[in-house]
Amino acid sequence: MWRYCSLLAQLVMHLDTFRVSRWLKRWRPPPWPALLLRVAVYSGLWWVITEGSGSGWLGLVLALLIALCAPLNVATWPQQLRWRRLPLFIGFMLKNSLFGALIVAQLALSRRCSANTHTRTYRFRLLKGHPQQLLMANLVNLTPGTLTLRLGCDTLSIHILHYQPQIEAQLMMLESHIAALYGLDHEPWEYEY
């Protein structure tokens, strides 16, 4: 009996060389609202992916598992997102990208095809965290006439297809929209050039 116990103890120690305990130590159950939101989103995605024909309980179980495993993968969910402002923001981006596409298409099909290209550095004024800056860098690619070249520390170098003076104002407007989406616009901030 004792021998079996020691064998078992050895087995557990062997298991621990897999660093399972280190994995488990990093794991924290996510807070309830975040967990519920994630399960809802993932099972909704499962419903969409299976085109409504997948079995529902399997989707729920999978969503719960993935949501529980996510903290191991470092919590990256944008918690402070203001969901109410999302539809307005999507509408703004759709209008912006349609406009941008029309401008580039017009330039591509024009007779002379001459672009007045520039590069310019944009300094973030409102957005501080990496995810927000990344969102801004991605959306700059969709706004008319601009392309992100590099995302630096608190700066964004931007390639401008056809330089016009209102591009700076356009970028500032985009940034203020993203800040509103994250609820950052009420925080005090210093205006600096």
Partner: peptide, 8 residues
């Protein structure tokens, strides 16, 4: 040089 990429 693209700091948010791992997050994405």
């Amino acid at each position: 040089y693209y700091p948010g990429l791992p997050t994405l």
